[in-house]
Design a protein around this nucleic acid. Structure first.
Lengths: 147, 147
DNA sequence: CCTGAAAATATATCGCC
DNA sequence: GGCGATATATTTTCAGG
């Protein structure tokens, strides 16, 4: 993991569909060399995948919420969570609540219906997202810093 | 947005670096037709970008937490948030807390230091992620459903 | 909107340093 | 590790339905 690998990671974090040829021009390294570095970054599990970002609102999903959940029916709740299309992210957490869910629904009414369904498994506290300041900030050390 | 567009979205959600040729084979449609549909999905803002997923632990970031935050110094706190490399996601929320942050740090010690820095702007409640059951479940209606 | 064909790019693979 | 060269694959472009 040197500076060049960081540049590759950073570039792909910004645009995962860039061609290797274009990256090789930006980085000033040959295309086969970039291909090989990328192969190793994937092989080492540093890059775990590539995702298209899709605007929920364009698919009619206008409500995003974080649901803190307290359940002692863990097995059942996790099975429910796997199957629930509303749950986008599903974490186990420490603290008073033992789960945190990111939930995307069409409206606040469908969010309410989802929360009702959850109440078979425990208690929840919900934070509705009013706006997103930013998402997915890169965790790769920036090129400008003294690395 | 017909079934074919949904297949394209779903495929790119799973692997954003797949070639259009390969998608066209999967979908049984000519490659220029898929290219044109993809161009429109991007133009309409349905696809907002493509991201490489990078494993935080492979970059030495072993602690993930969600921080609920209550601040009345909104301008200052948001400026701080933009600049803080630890904050990956930054949301404004309804309820007792007015912000929710996803924070990725090296260790629980660096998380603690980050929380100390935050306390200049208000009060926080932190949920440390113990494990991730899943992340980024697709919001695209599945192909098997009767669409 | 889609297809098919041809020209322009990009990628995989190799021998070599 | 990386480079250059080349064969294969992909993308872009466009005429035609």
């Amino acid at each position: 993991m040197d500076r060049i690998d960081q540049q590759i990671l950073s570039t792909l974090h910004d645009n995962a569909r860039i061609t290797i040829s274009e990256m090789s021009r930006m980085i000033a390294m040959s295309q086969p060399a970039v291909t090989e570095r990328l192969r190793k970054l994937e092989e080492q599990g540093i890059i775990t995948g590539y995702r298209a970002e899709i605007a929920p609102s364009k698919l009619g999903k206008h409500t995003t919420a974080f649901v803190l959940f307290k359940s002692n029916k863990c097995k059942e709740f996790e099975a429910f969570g796997e199957a629930a299309p509303e749950i986008v992210d599903f974490y186990r957490t420490s603290g008073e609540y033992n789960y945190l869910l990111k939930v995307v629904t069409e409206t606040s009414e469908t969010l309410e219906a989802f929360l009702e369904a959850c109440h078979a498994f425990g208690f929840s506290s919900t934070l509705v997202v009013l706006s997103t300041r930013f998402e997915d900030k890169s965790i790769v050390p920036s090129r400008s810093a003294a690395n």
